[in-house]
């Protein structure tokens, strides 16, 4: 049971890293906690439902389509909301409120369009038969999700470290003022980062039905808390810390399910609170407390 919990914990951990990384990228670049992130994932899950279960597209096509569509949709959302915030007196608080409003709006629209009933997608759409991995047997969909998550995390790393735009993105994350001073177009880079964040949420959403079971429009807020917990464990503003956070979160969740299953629901909340209080900068991070 322990080995199974550890193996599935790592598999789920990689997926949770994918769930959190978009929120972390946006936070790192814009210093905004995007509370609509969970709703982007929820919309990704509905897209997967239509693309996979209704239109019967192959999964890779659904992933690419989801990423591109959400990336493109993310750009105007950025330009409509964020630049105006930067001029406000309390940008951090207002952004929290603003994206909370966006989250509520998306959830309501989803409920009106898709209804509130629970939906699910059969796991066989990602391939039949169990898979043997890390000495354990687990559903093929889980391994599929973990592999795609790993690939996406790798692509994020490549983007940040091997492309011109990515290097400018990291410059903004490290020192915003200096980045402006050397002529980096903050809004362009931030808009792209926001789009990538939305695209990554879409990919996470495609796998949400397989990893989280059924889904409804109300999935957004719980996913926000999970994402926030994952990235806080790793380090806010450090996208690669998210991988560490995801795996720790995944393994802990699976251990809880194995040994303390009735309290497993409490986990994301408690982890979030404890990490914030004990090590608020995350395992790899910087200062977040008040002076």
């Amino acid at each position: 049971m322990l080995a199974y919990a550890l193996a599935t914990g790592i598999v789920f951990g990689l997926y949770f890293a994918l769930v959190g990384i978009g929120m972390n990228l946006v936070f790192g670049v814009m210093r905004i906690v995007n509370l609509a992130h969970g709703d982007f994932i929820m919309l990704g899950a509905f897209s997967a439902f239509w693309l996979l279960a209704v239109l019967h597209l192959p999964p890779p096509a659904a992933i690419v389509l989801g990423f591109v569509a959400f990336f493109l949709a993310g750009l105007p959302v950025y330009y409509a909301l964020v630049p105006r915030l930067a001029r406000a007196r309390e940008p951090e608080m207002l952004s929290l409120i603003l994206f909370f409003g966006l989250s509520q709006t998306i959830e309501a629209l989803a409920a009106m369009l898709f209804g509130n009933s629970e939906r699910s997608i059969p796991g066989r759409l990602l391939g039949r038969g169990p898979v043997h991995l890390l000495g354990q047997t687990m559903p093929r969909a889980w391994v599929y999700a973990a592999a795609v998550s790993l690939a996406m995390l790798g692509l994020v790393w490549l983007y940040l470290h091997r492309t011109r735009l990515g290097r400018q993105t990291r410059a903004i994350m490290a020192a915003r003022q200096e980045a402006v001073a050397i002529g980096i177009d903050i809004h362009r880079i931030s808009a792209i980062a926001f789009g990538i964040g939305a695209g990554l949420a879409a990919v996470a959403g495609v796998f949400a039905p397989f990893m989280l079971g059924s889904f409804t429009p109300a999935l957004g807020i719980p996913l926000d808390l999970t994402s926030f917990a994952v990235i806080v464990i790793g380090a806010l503003g450090n996208p690669l810390g998210t991988v560490l956070g995801g795996v720790i979160f995944g393994v802990t969740l699976m251990l809880m399910r194995a040994y303390l299953s009735s309290f497993a629901d409490l986990l994301p909340d408690l982890v979030l609170i404890l990490v914030l209080l004990v090590r608020p900068a995350g395992l790899l991070g910087r200062q977040v407390r008040r002076a």
Partner: peptide, 20 residues
């Protein structure tokens, strides 16, 4: 309820953007 949720969601955004 989703109509109110929509109205409130939009209202929250408008407040944050224009009338903090």
């Amino acid at each position: 309820p989703q109509y109110f949720q929509l109205a409130y969601g939009v209202l929250i955004m408008l407040l944050a953007l224009f009338f903090p």
